[in-house]
């Protein structure tokens, strides 16, 4: 910038710190809540500093579960969320990279039809077709199964478009060179295109993992058994309508555990995350 006034720098730092404080405060309060006794929270007298029950509350949350409406320990829910997030992320990447490969590197009848069929799904988010999709999943006996959690969310126009865009920038000479070396379409894909797409795949993986982990409406409908619940659904079910029965310390410990994996992914793989975010929105 042009001016280097001390005042402006200090203001900038101050504004950023205030912003960070506001952004972090809800999570800080959740952490505080997860270390106190139920009665302290229920009285509305919770202090702003951590309580003594950190180990006890988290132990109970992970291995025993809340005594309220959902009795599964959170470790089960964490596992369900992990399976669902990983299958959505890997499944989406796998089916979109091969379909993008077909669309870009082959010429065949109905190529453009296929492309448009995929493209239009951008306009059909799961929220607007929720009940018919549920009915189809039920007819296919997918309720309460990992396949039911992941499959309907696996088709993605965004990922296909992203790979298509990337393949278009790959020089044609590479195809010619690998042809001269005697490689067919399969070899070219495996030995040339996949290694080149590594960064894109990783960036996409970060975004899709978070997307899968944070799903709410679909798992809410498709899971009825407690042991198939994802952690995000589990939290919601722990909050009972009769307020007195909600064990807020367990709810908050669960919330902390639900945030930990996706937030860790964002912080640790920050560069890939930013790249994935910017590219999927193009």
């Amino acid at each position: 910038m042009v001016e280097h006034s001390r005042f402006r720098t200090v203001t900038a730092h101050a504004i950023l710190w205030i912003g960070i404080a506001i952004v972090a405060f809800p999570v800080y309060m959740a952490f505080i809540g997860s270390t106190h006794e139920a009665s302290v929270i229920a009285n509305g007298q919770m202090p702003l500093t951590p309580g003594p029950l950190f180990v006890e509350n988290y132990y109970r949350t992970i291995f025993i579960g809340s005594s309220g409406s959902t009795r599964e320990p959170v470790s089960t829910m964490l596992l369900n969320s992990l399976v669902m997030a990983l299958s959505i992320a890997c499944g989406k990447i796998a089916i979109s990279i091969i379909s993008a490969y077909a669309i870009v590197y082959f010429r065949f009848p109905f190529r453009m039809t296929a492309f448009w069929i995929i493209f239009v799904t951008l306009m059909l988010p799961v929220e607007v077709r929720i009940y018919p999709t549920y009915k189809i999943a039920a007819d296919l006996h997918l309720l309460d199964s990992y396949a039911g959690l992941a499959l309907p969310l696996i088709a993605s126009a965004t990922a296909t478009l992203l790979f298509r865009q990337f393949f278009m920038t790959v020089p044609d000479e590479l195809v010619e060179a690998s042809r001269i070396d005697g490689a067919g379409p399969f070899r070219f894909f495996k030995d040339t295109l996949l290694p080149l797409s590594r960064t894109n795949m990783a960036a996409l993986f970060v975004i899709l993992f978070i997307y899968g982990w944070n799903q709410y409406l679909w798992p809410l409908l498709i899971t009825t058994r407690d042991d198939m619940q994802t952690i995000v659904i589990g939290i919601r079910k722990m909050i009972t309508t009769a307020d007195a029965l909600t064990e807020w310390q367990i709810v908050m410990a669960t919330a902390m555990l639900a945030m930990l994996p996706p937030v860790a992914v964002v912080v640790v793989m920050q560069r890939l995350f930013v790249r994935g975010l910017v590219e999927t929105e193009k």
Partner: peptide, 27 residues
């Protein structure tokens, strides 16, 4: 420090804010 809330699930975000603003127990 500013980008991580992107990773918080909407439902979890709701629960966090409810906990702070809950009429009988929120800080």
């Amino acid at each position: 420090l500013l980008i991580w809330p992107y990773a918080v699930a909407p439902a979890v975000a709701g629960v966090l804010w409810l906990f702070m603003f809950h009429p009988s127990l929120g800080v």
